[in-house]
Amino acid sequence: MQEIPINTYSSPTVILDLIYRLKVKDVMYKDLTCATMSSTLREIQHLMKKEKITGVPIVQGKRLIGLVSMDDIIQALDKGYIEEPCKAYMSRNIIVLEDDMPISFAINYFDKFSFHRFPVLNKEKELVGMITSRDISATLLVEINREMEILEKSQASNQPTNPNNINGEIHSYNIIKHDFENAGYASTQIKKKLKKGGVATQIIRRAAIASYEMEMNIVVHSNGGQLSATYTPNKVIICAQDRGPGIKDIEKALTPGWSTANDWIRSLGFGAGMGLPNVKNVSDDFSIESSPKGTSVTCTINLQKKDEENKDDSK
């Protein structure tokens, strides 16, 4: 059974927005009860009982060294080493979360691993909290309640919106903030459509580069938005539109190598600061506008082979 029965890619948009907006640090508990390597398993057992917890992090200063779980205590009682220091028996290979990650990550971790809790570290690798699936469920319930209230209130004035509006030759895709699980889906669809249309490989490649970079920028840097592709016989126009926070200095953003991506985003291979320059390079026509309300990037790629043969690099 899933620890948290929420699908992190095909749930309703309200839920998806929530699990990508809420961060691990918004959900974790910070009031930690810790022990050190010299604490005996017996002492830890008492700690667990007193604090009504089932896992105790073992620390050295602010560094996480290990973890003792209820299972470890039961083992110790069973095998008769409960009076010994925990050092030799604690789990050392611990999977941790970062406080800046969206809780969708945490949900996936609970799914992937059979642990009941994860320690949370900050950028400085210090232990700052712990998270259990219960913390997530509880926070989600509160937030969903709030969202439902807003939804109910706005229902009367709500205009219908259609996320995947396939209107003849315009296809548009909803892109969710920090949704790395599904990142690349929209670009893949655009590539497939062009391939089906018999467009030359080199031109498809350029469209794939542009759409991927634009899609990833919405995932990585924005509060979420849409990627759309308008197909005409002569060209494809790819548009990225998001809901903020905008780019302060567009000129800098277009400079190769300039990036504001944080460490964990970089660890996934993003943040080279090459995305927008790539888009500009492969476009026959390129424009970008940005305000705190949102960024919109438009890239046009001519589908005529002739253009490819003349290879116009100046644009």
Partner: peptide
């Protein structure tokens, strides 16, 4: 880069 996004990049670049 051992994660799913690498597959997207490979697929897009054939």
């Amino acid at each position: 880069q051992a994660h799913k996004n690498t597959i997207a990049v490979c697929s897009l670049s054939s």
